[in-house]
Design a protein around this nucleic acid. Structure first.
Length: 182
DNA sequence: TGCACGATGAAC
DNA sequence: TTCATCGTGCAC
């Protein structure tokens, strides 16, 4: 069962934290690829200088400004794709970047890193704007209510963002071997 | 119309 | 530390 849209309609840092332990589900040619989310980053909106939406509303960032619970997928360094979920109500351009998954089902390739997990799950720009409350790509609640030890760190690769680069907006599961950079 | 560069990953 | 590789965003 996909998480309801109201789950995503909250602030990005809360969503990023609560997505840990949830299961990202991708359906490719009728087959399931499932991974447990173990690492995320929150991008808060146009005031967050590390967020793409800080450069304003453009063709690329359009989905970030749209309703919550949709996929924001973009190409980075001309080579890799990054997968985000849009958060907050329409008009607030915030999102959560999913950085690492622990394989659960139907996954053979590596999933530790935003580009790698997109490759492993068959996520590319064709899924940009995809409704995460649909059936091709969604996130299911954590199967168990285990209390996770969550680590907060500065986000990766955003040194250009000044003080915003030092904010603790990266979240991961303590001690999990699938985290991209422990 | 041109150009510098990036929310990465892999090789050296 | 360097490089692949291309879409974006912004300068001319």
């Amino acid at each position: 069962m996909p998480l309801p849209r109201r789950f995503y309609a909250r602030d990005a840092a809360t969503v990023a934290r609560e997505l840990l332990g949830a299961q990202l589900v991708r359906v490719v040619a009728g087959a399931l690829r499932v991974g447990r989310i173990v690492e995320t980053e929150a991008y808060l909106g146009p005031h967050d200088l590390a967020a793409h939406s800080a450069r304003g509303r453009t063709a690329r960032t359009e989905v970030m400004f749209g309703p919550p619970g949709h996929a924001y997928v973009y190409l980075i360094y001309g080579v890799h794709h990054c997968f985000n979920v849009v958060t907050q109500p329409a008009g607030v351009a915030a999102a959560v970047l999913v950085r690492a998954l622990e394989p659960v089902e139907g996954i053979t390739d590596r999933t530790s890193g935003p580009g790698l997990l997109c490759r492993a799950l068959g996520i590319d720009r064709a899924l940009n704007g995809e409704d995460m409350c649909g059936e091709k790509l969604f996130i299911a609640p954590p199967p168990s209510a285990d209390q996770l030890r969550i680590v907060r760190r500065p986000r990766i690769g955003v040194d250009y963002a000044g003080a915003w680069a030092r904010r603790l907006l990266r979240f991961y599961v303590h001690g999990n071997r699938w985290v991209s950079k422990p």
